[in-house]
């Protein structure tokens, strides 16, 4: 786990990958959805059970108490077990419960994290669990700590199509392969990512902000590697950033 709130897993094969803990607010929204489902389910079942009252009011009430209790406890346990750490609310919010080591959940982990909601909800409105999530570096509530689980973003990243983004345009920087090599050496993945994201989001920016943002980014890259003035002549800041991203991402 590093300071950027990222859970880094190292596999037995020596590969590392990152999981990103979901924020407490998103988790609260997911639980709110599940809570609504539990209430709806209970209302629906109560309606069906009320038919029993024709035979016995006592029996109908008994079933109603037991089923309400069973649904409110078993819903999250069963659904998380069947859907590998997801409930309806979690699916909608694109989050998932996983073992702290990135593995699938064992049944006992699901039971413990859900039963310990009793203490997380204490004294009211998930106060204790909320505080624990905010303090914990992995956004874990008490139930997660006891069960060794983490709620993460269920990332399903699609392969980016870089060729489409840069295709068909002449890039004057490509005339200088030695400078491009130096640029690739000096630019960090995060810096390259900033250039790429700026290009991808350019249509969403208003004209004055766009000019300002591309100016800042281009000035930054110009400091890293200096191309001669003739090469950059007549190229706008935006085009310069586009050319930089092109040579960084398209080899």
């Amino acid at each position: 786990m590093n300071k950027t709130n990222k859970l880094t897993i190292r596999t037995p094969e020596g590969i590392t990958f990152s999981l990103f803990p979901a924020s407490p607010v998103i988790r609260l929204l997911a639980y709110s959805i599940d809570f609504l489902i539990i209430i709806t389910l209970n209302m629906f079942v109560s309606k069906i059970i009320s038919i029993l009252s024709i035979f016995s009011q006592d029996l109908a009430q008994a079933f109603s108490i037991l089923i309400f209790f069973a649904i409110s406890i078993a819903y999250t346990i069963l659904i998380e077990w069947i859907w590998n750490g997801q409930t309806v609310g979690k699916k909608i919010m694109k989050i998932r419960v996983v073992d702290k080591n990135g593995l699938n959940l064992r049944f006992s982990q699901i039971v413990i994290r859900n039963l310990l909601r009793f203490i997380d909800a204490f004294p009211a409105f998930y106060l204790l669990g909320g505080i624990s999530s905010l303090i914990s570096s992995k956004s874990q509530r008490l139930g997660d700590i006891a069960a060794n689980t983490v709620v993460i973003w269920n990332r399903n990243v699609k392969e980016p199509n870089f060729e489409k983004l840069f295709s068909g345009k002449y890039n004057s920087l490509r005339e200088y392969p030695h400078l491009i090599a130096r640029l690739r050496q000096k630019v960090s993945p995060e810096e390259a990512d900033i250039a790429l994201r700026a290009i991808m989001r350019r249509d969403g920016l208003n004209p004055s902000s766009r000019v300002e943002i591309f100016n800042v980014i281009s000035q930054h890259f110009k400091k890293i590697t200096e191309f001669d003035e003739e090469t950059l002549e007549g190229i706008s800041d935006e085009q310069y950033v586009r050319n930089i991203a092109d040579v960084l991402y398209n080899t």
Partner: peptide
Amino acid sequence: STFSAKQELREYLESLVARAFANIHENR
């Protein structure tokens, strides 16, 4: 991972490996 660019490609592969890892290393 040793290559400075292609951040999104790395994210894509990380997401694939993370999802497959949980299934391969079944602990149930």
